[in-house]
């Protein structure tokens, strides 16, 4: 090829001025409708929501007079929102951890050159194709304390059957603000359903990670006399660090947005033991008509997510060629 790559594409900003052609305008024209749509519907609306969160609009009739940080102070002193933050913390940690461990475990099993690999893989991933609402409806019945899973536990001889999502116990229940800090046991039921649905996602990511590790690396370790277990910890796992970052960030992202599953399965729960910020926002805004407080909750949700997503996006895209 005689032509220099720089002449071919318009990637180099600092070259001598090129003649004005339609070719240089088309890409921007193509993108323009999407740029406008995202600018308005994502960034414009976020700013709008931000503005609402500083107003007195806490009735059905919009009142856009300035209220300072009063809505934020109100939600942070609210029993319900404090419960939300506690629940979100415990839900996220357990859901991410368990999904990750099961996902990695299954990926390693599936990667052992097994028969019917496609079938097993499909079985572990299919819940991802199902709506959270459907998952919630089905698991609500499976974990109904008087039937379902508890029938099996009873048959196995268990006498203290778990009360699942109707349990209001909080462990260890340390007083904190207006609430008791600790893991609400009712959340475990929701976590089980969420792990059932999402662990296949972790498996798929880990499996693609395992498949991209060159075989000679594994073989080299085997020649060195490392047994399978050491090979896994010393050679394979470090190679999966980047995948683990992706898995954790994506699962955190899903966990923070959890809404449908809770809505269908448990609702906010007694004393808000299974409530989430997403649910609180929805009900505060559209059922309670406290628009400004709802807006404040959603801004907190956005900030919590941005802490994880913005560095991740920057890091993911920086690795690419310019």
């Amino acid at each position: 090829m005689a032509m220099q790559p720089a002449e071919m594409t318009i990637t180099q900003p600092r070259r001598a001025r090129k003649p004005w052609t339609w070719e240089r305008v088309y890409p921007i024209l193509t993108l323009l409708p999407s740029i406008i749509a995202i600018a308005v519907f994502v960034y414009g609306f976020i700013v709008w929501t931000g503005v609402v969160s500083f107003t007195k609009w806490n009735t059905l009739v919009p009142d856009l007079s300035w209220n300072g940080f009063a809505n934020y102070r109100a939600i942070f002193q609210d029993f319900r929102f404090q419960s939300d933050l506690r629940n979100l913390l415990f839900f996220t940690v357990l859901f991410v951890l368990v999904s990750m461990i099961i996902g990695l475990f299954l990926a390693v099993l599936v990667d052992q050159k097994i028969r019917l690999e496609g079938l097993f893989r499909s079985l572990f991933i299919f819940p991802m194709a199902i709506a959270f609402i459907v998952t919630g409806v089905v698991w609500q019945w499976l974990l109904n304390p008087s039937t379902g899973v508890n029938l099996i536990l009873k048959a196995l001889g268990l006498t203290h059957l778990p009360k699942w999502y109707v349990d209001i116990t909080i462990v260890p229940s340390i007083p904190w603000g207006h609430i008791k800090f600790g893991l609400p046991l009712a959340l475990l039921a929701v976590i089980i359903a969420a792990v059932w649905q999402m662990s296949g996602f972790a498996m798929a990511l880990y499996l693609s990670g395992l498949r991209s590790i060159p075989d000679d690396l594994k073989e080299a370790a085997a020649v060195d006399g490392a047994n399978a277990w050491t090979t896994f910890w010393r050679v394979i796992l470090p190679q999966l660090n980047a995948v683990t970052v992706t898995v954790v960030i994506m699962l955190i992202h899903i966990s923070m947005k959890t809404f449908d599953l809770i809505y269908a399965m448990t609702g906010p729960g007694a004393a808000f033991v299974t409530d989430m910020p997403s649910m609180d926002m929805f009900q505060t805004t559209f059922q309670g008509n406290h628009y400004a407080q709802g807006a404040a909750i959603s801004i907190i949700m956005l900030l919590l997510l941005a802490i994880f997503i913005v560095p991740y996006l920057t890091y993911s895209l920086r690795g690419e060629k310019p």
């Binding site: 519907f41 929501t49 992202h253 947005k257 926002m281 709802g294 959603s298 949700m301 956005l302």
Partner: peptide, 20 residues
């Protein structure tokens, strides 16, 4: 531009719901 566009898929949609 691409990065700003991408962020749109990670926002909690609650934060655009009232204006929407």
């Amino acid at each position: 531009l691409f990065q700003w566009l991408l962020f749109g898929m990670f926002i909690p949609y609650q934060s655009v719901l009232i204006p929407l």
